[in-house]
Design a protein around this nucleic acid. Structure first.
Lengths: 246, 246
DNA sequence: CGAGCACTTGATCGCTTTCAATAGCTGTGG
DNA sequence: CCACAGCTATTGAAAGCGATCAAGTGCTCG
């Protein structure tokens, strides 16, 4: 059981300790957080928060991936955010959720009831400051994505998404080295389509095309190898040096 | 001269006093801001900040409209934000600007050198708190726009943009009343295209189509009348009640 | 073995882009 | 005063890309 594994975790042992909203907290502040935190787990596919719902908690993704999606009345949906471990869920100071939050994979979250967290934010500048930083980063990411959605071709969109997922793993391996990157796609073709503003058929076709052209290699449907990251970035239409922080 | 008109304005007389980053400041805090602020003006078309430039100031739009744009190497450009009076420009805690900032119309900004502003942020929670609020609002707006870019048709995109511009004026007139809304488009067709991820020809065609269908009326190229806001919102694909805050 | 699901592939359609010509407006200079 | 350049915007015709409709594959699980 994933949950049990986290039920009694100390903040100091937490895998996202240094990146999450609590990153800058000192020992005292961490203790206060520890008092009000609790873990929740979600299964892949489960909806964590419905758009319009009252949000009575906020929290951090500890493991797994969650997605934020908006849906139009006729069913068209657009993913507007991808939440990875350490990302923050919820919005202090707002009642209703503006979009659906779904667990894309099995998920563990570290939650805080909203009211106590808001109180804590007002007394511990480190939390408020870190949250501002993280929100600004998310804003940059959202705007980066607007360029993808508005101006890139289907092939470039796929390459961009693969780059983003790969970059996360690339932070482990030395930079700029053309060492192959290997990972498992955490998203179905449909989820990728919803993220990219495409249909799942187009996603499938473009992945096949990138494979045929040797930009990526596929084992099964989800296991991806990128022999040369720079070629992928070229396909994404990004400038090769790509000065990213995320 | 626009600038002269603002050169010696007291914060307490400022038209954006109640909405900008200084909105929650008390008299003392306002005085500190007053000490370090200065006004700058820009002409329509002028670039305020180039992507990649070092940013040595932050500030608020006092009057006029600015736009944030990203450009790919081959020239494709996407507008990623529209800054209206009271909106904040710049990013405390980051060196380089992530995108171009351009004056879409003649513009007046209330600026602060970055370093003193950052110091002030650390000592006056009201400013940091307000900036967090504003950033979260911008994030919501960016995500709202991702749905437009990713999933809406050209016609819906135009209607969405007109709705946003109109809504700003609508905040003056009583809500839900089908009173006509009248405004001047602050954007060229090309700027609209860059915002919507379309070509300027498509923008022009869709505006003509909305006009032919009686959704909007046009006098000249820029002066727009919306006889029934609800019809426009339907064309935009938004649910009619549209729970917006911005 | 068959149902269900995720994915792939093919054929066709249609919306948006692209290329191109034209209109309307403003400002400039002979 | 008119001719003309330069800019914004409109409109038309054709091309192309991604969507749509439709099978079909491969895998897992009962």
């Amino acid at each position: 059981m994933l949950k049990a594994q986290f039920d009694h975790t100390n903040c100091s042992d937490c895998p996202i300790r240094h990146r999450a909203v609590c990153a800058h907290c000192d020992a005292d502040e961490l203790e206060e957080l520890e008092d009000i935190k609790y873990y929740r787990t979600f299964e892949a596919g489960q909806t964590i928060i419905w758009s319009g719902d009252q949000m009575n908690f906020v929290g951090s993704v500890v493991s797994g991936i969650a997605s934020l999606t908006q849906t139009m009345e006729d069913g068209r949906t657009q993913m507007v955010g991808l939440l990875l471990p350490s990302d923050f869920v919820g919005r202090p100071g707002r009642e209703a959720a503006p979009y659906d939050v779904q667990a894309t994979t099995d998920l563990v979250m570290c939650c805080f009831r909203k009211k106590p967290f808001e109180d804590l934010m007002n007394t511990t500048p480190h939390i408020a400051h870190r949250l501002l930083q993280m929100t600004l980063d998310e804003l940059d990411a959202a705007r980066e994505w607007m360029l993808v959605l508005g101006r890139k071709t289907a092939r470039e969109k796929i390459a961009s998404l693969l780059s983003i997922i790969a970059r996360r793993d690339a932070s482990i391996t030395p930079k700029d080295k053309p060492a192959p990157i290997v990972f498992d796609l955490p998203l179905t073709r449909e989820a990728m389509a919803d993220y990219l503003g495409l249909t799942l058929e187009t996603v499938s076709r473009q992945i096949s095309a990138l494979k045929k052209d040797g930009i990526i290699q596929l084992e099964g449907k989800r296991h991806v190898t990128i022999p040369d990251m720079r070629r992928l970035m070229e396909e994404a239409g990004d400038d090769s040096d790509g000065g990213f922080l995320v």
